[in-house]
């Protein structure tokens, strides 16, 4: 008991913490952006896209940064969410927000639960490579499938998607859609943060570091992995639905390995395992891509540049942009409610 009473103040409670500052600053910028950019609808559209793609990046971060599941297939759930709401709008004439976004969420959850059960819940513990190839194959197969399926528009995808409705209000691209995307991202972010810093988050962090150790103290590691993978799939599904409504279009490329790999890039570039890092990574990659889009000489080689950036990050700065100014100790953080001395 003496030792408990003399427990030193738990580290992390003292010193300047950078992550909350980055989070608040990002939120302030996000709220201000549509007002600052109000006379540039193209930039508001870009910013809305960034918010939506940030959800895809967070879904990958939950898998890899939090739980050690290397998913190269997050776009599969993103695309399916987009296709589902497009089809419901086209065939049933329904696009109310209270029905379609939960539907996309459920579809993403169920599909990822199915794929997760197949990849993760076998008798033998799957390797990182097995899961990476399995998810990549799923994403690739889905892209090929819809490319040849006339019912879903084949290679042309589905366009003129019915506008998202809330009562009689219709969301068109612009400030209202931007704030809808921001509110959704905020909900996703807060939920993911609560998960990450809970005692369950501690299990996931342990799993990422040494899943064998966790199995030997009594955790059903693969079940936890399947659960996180499913939650991440649900988030990607909602993001896909918003993307589809916002763009008025969804196509095979929105569920293939290209977008899946871009989600990996967003996350690693910003700093995996931090949640805010993937958002910063998405902003950086998308803004640079937009800025260079009109320069033909660079536009054609931009995918190659992105590939090299990914390679460089993996090799030289695996902690991403955030790694430059957030300490390892702060990035690791603490889990659950912090006990008081002598508690």
């Amino acid at each position: 008991m003496t030792a408990i009473l003399s427990l030193p103040a738990r580290r992390g409670a003292k010193g300047l913490r950078v992550l909350p500052i980055v989070e608040i600053a990002t939120l302030v910028v996000a709220i201000a952006a549509p007002f600052v950019l109000s006379d540039r609808i193209d930039l508001v559209t870009l910013a809305t896209n960034v918010l939506i793609l940030s959800m895809l990046a967070i879904s990958f971060d939950l898998c890899w940064g939090l739980s050690g599941i290397m998913s190269f297939g997050q776009a599969l759930f993103f695309g399916v969410g987009g296709y589902v709401i497009a089809l419901v709008g086209r065939d049933l004439g329904f696009s109310h927000i209270w029905g379609t976004l939960p539907l996309a969420l459920l579809t993403g959850f169920l599909l990822s639960a199915l794929l997760g059960a197949f990849l993760l819940l076998g008798r033998k513990t799957p390797t990182v490579i097995f899961v990476a190839l399995g998810t990549l194959t799923g994403s690739y197969a889905a892209e090929r499938l819809v490319s040849g399926w006339q019912y879903v528009g084949a290679g042309n995808g589905l366009s003129s998607i019915k506008l998202l409705q809330a009562g009689s209000y219709e969301f068109v691209e612009g400030t209202a859609f931007y704030f809808l995307a921001l509110a959704t991202l905020l909900v996703v972010y807060v939920a993911a943060r609560i998960l990450m810093r809970s005692q369950l988050g501690l299990v996931l962090a342990g799993m990422r570091q040494n899943e064998e150790r966790l199995a030997f103290v009594g955790y059903r590691v693969q079940l936890f992995k399947a659960l996180v993978f499913s939650v991440a799939g649900a988030i990607a599904g909602v993001a896909g639905a918003l993307y589809s409504y916002h763009q008025g279009f969804i196509g095979p490329g929105n569920m293939g390995p290209g977008l899946s790999t871009t989600a990996v890039l967003y996350c690693l570039f910003g700093g995996s395992g931090t949640l805010i890092g993937p958002i910063l990574g998405t902003i950086a990659v998308e803004v640079i891509t937009y800025a260079l889009a009109d320069i033909d000489a660079i536009k054609s080689i931009w995918p190659v540049v992105l590939g090299l950036v990914l390679l460089g990050v993996v090799m030289f700065q695996p902690k991403g942009i955030l790694g430059f100014f957030v300490s390892d100790r702060e990035r690791i953080g603490s889990y659950g409610e912090r006990p008081q001395r002598g508690a």
Binding site: R10, R11, Q199, G206, R213, V217
Partner: peptide, 18 residues
């Protein structure tokens, strides 16, 4: 096979809450 990126406290908590 301790978990190097977790505190000693969290390593034990992890085992206790299994």
């Amino acid at each position: 096979a301790v978990l190097p990126e977790l505190s000693a406290y969290d390593n034990v908590l992890l085992a206790l809450q299994s």
